[in-house]
Amino acid sequence: MLELRLVQGSLLKKVLEAIKDLVNDANFDCSATGFSLQAMDSSHVALVALLLRSEGFEHYRCDRNLSMGMNLGNMAKMLKCAGNDDIITLKADDGSDTVTFMFESPTQDKISDFEMKLMDIDSEHLGIPEAEYHAIVRMPSSEFGRICKDLSSIGDTVVISVTKEGVKFSTRGDIGTANIVCRQNNTVDKPEEATIIEMTEPVSLTFALRYMNSFTKATPLSSIVTLSLSSDLPVVVEYKIAEMGYIRFYLAPKIEE
């Protein structure tokens, strides 16, 4: 028996909007720790890891570890039917091939049930090693989203270079080149507007902008994004989900042949 009640149902709506275009089908894993997902895109270039900790739910009942295969497009369709202020409850019985989403309006005057078919998905979890990153950039998520969008109108790839001067995002395309430098700036009034760079050594990596732009669909989940870079590892683009967990996107770099 599984029953997860999320008062801030809009979080789950935003999570689905953030990942549904990157991953078609995925297993959601339910355990005492929380509600989680790990899935790769169909090209095996990017990986998304989601965790919503059990403490973040108003009610969290998960009698035994359960893996539920869902089509994320279909799940997003169902969650779109929930109001932004609705409380969302997920329910599944042991051995059932369906999951039920219950939406309650804040005033309890409208209660909806949506039942969705589960699917068998063959997926293996990848081991993500703990890593010391050469550079960690923390910046406003809206700024990062703007940069990815702007650069993708010029080129297909972005070179992210971190030095003690700042973080530089560069692209080139048929019409020309673009460079955007964000300097460390932690003197702003609001912490969510700060750009903070922690660096142990300079790093420069190239990534496909198509994926970066897809990751920025998570912007509504957090005002801050963290980019963790090392010269020999995929970049981690992390959006923290307030009081609940995170959504992390890993993107393999483009490398010299």
């Binding site: 270039v45 990848l126 770099p253 490398i255």
Partner: peptide, 14 residues
């Protein structure tokens, strides 16, 4: 030229 690497080249199967 540069080639797209695969995430599976970095993270092994559990």
């Amino acid at each position: 030229s540069q080639q797209q690497s695969s995430i599976m080249g970095y993270f092994g199967k559990k």
